[in-house]
């Protein structure tokens, strides 16, 4: 679709509010109201469980971040060939890559996750070869299925972005590389890939935030990320809102950190005319 960039921006926070001219008279009043709300939340709601579960929450955040970064990096490694094949590959590979992207993008992530965990997870034990292989101790756990589903999802969405990025690199630059006598591989390594990644970088920010927003789904297949820890707290303490509000706050902070980090990264890479 032509405006994927806009949609990503509409769904994922990619910019923090401007700091310049932030303090206007009405904002001071709004902030005072917000402060009163926060004070009420802190005073009238129950937070005595916080010290008891603090360490587990921190561990949960660690699992969430581990899931996020491992699946983003793995997914990006898959996305590069997926995008490349769709631009320049032979037609069977092209159809295969396009079919993969269509199927993954056309079905809910939750369904894919459950398909892998319950479906494959119930199929694997029937094969003695798998039960005796060295992979079996891992296949009995939940996290490999979560990592696989999130990686495939990221690869499909980012593969579509990379397809556009590869197709958008001016042909003249590639021809210039060929004219210098570079081999096809050298052209790809020195010109095509770096230019495509450069073009895809702005959407990468949004995609990473979207991936962070997708990670709590792994809690439904018993991976203990921060969402699962909060669900556990809610069961133990019979509290409805407090743990959920804390969870929203945690995700808000994680997103803000991601946005700031990407902004710093983008500023480091020189862009002509910007």
């Amino acid at each position: 679709m032509m405006s994927d960039d806009n949609t990503i921006g509409a769904m994922a926070l990619t910019e923090l509010p401007d700091r310049k001219g932030f303090l206007k008279p009405h904002r001071i009043i709004l902030m005072a109201i917000a402060a009163v709300l926060v004070f009420c939340a802190a005073w009238f709601m129950r937070w005595d469980w916080l010290p008891e579960y603090g360490w587990r929450l921190a561990q949960g955040v660690g699992v969430t971040l581990l899931m996020l970064f491992s699946t983003c990096i793995l997914g990006f490694l898959f996305a590069v060939p997926l995008g490349l094949v769709q631009v320049t590959g032979p037609w069977p590979l092209k159809m295969l890559a396009r079919g993969f992207c269509t199927i993954i993008r056309g079905t809910p992530l939750l369904l894919q996750l459950w398909l892998l965990y319950y479906g494959l997870g119930s199929l694997f034990p029937q094969f003695p070869a798998i039960r005796q292989s060295f992979l079996w101790p891992y296949l009995r756990e939940a996290w490999p299925y979560g990592v696989a589903a999130l990686t495939m999802s990221f690869a499909a969405y980012e593969g579509e972005v990379m397809r556009g990025a590869f197709a958008g690199v001016p042909a003249g630059e590639l021809e210039a590389g060929r004219a210098y006598g570079m081999s096809r591989w050298t052209v790809f390594r020195r010109i095509w890939l770096p230019r495509a990644i450069h073009r895809a970088l702005p959407t990468l920010n949004g995609e990473t935030v979207l991936q962070l927003k997708a990670t709590p789904l792994v809690a439904t297949i018993t991976v203990i990320d921060v969402y699962a820890v909060v669900s556990k707290i809610r069961q133990m303490t019979y509290l409805t809102y407090e743990p959920l509000l804390l969870l929203a706050l945690i995700y808000l902070c994680l997103t803000a950190i991601l946005v700031v980090a990407f902004r710093a990264l983008e500023n480091k890479i020189p862009t002509r005319g910007a």
Binding site: M11, A12, A248, Y251, L252, T255
Partner: peptide, 27 residues
């Protein structure tokens, strides 16, 4: 004021996972 309130709304929804929002809003 309306602009700022809407900014808070869209920022929150875009930064917090749908799953968490759905639970919060549902309850």
């Amino acid at each position: 004021v309306l602009k700022d309130l809407l900014e808070v709304y869209t920022t929150l929804v875009r930064a917090v996972p749908e799953l968490v929002l759905i639970l919060l809003l549902y309850y």
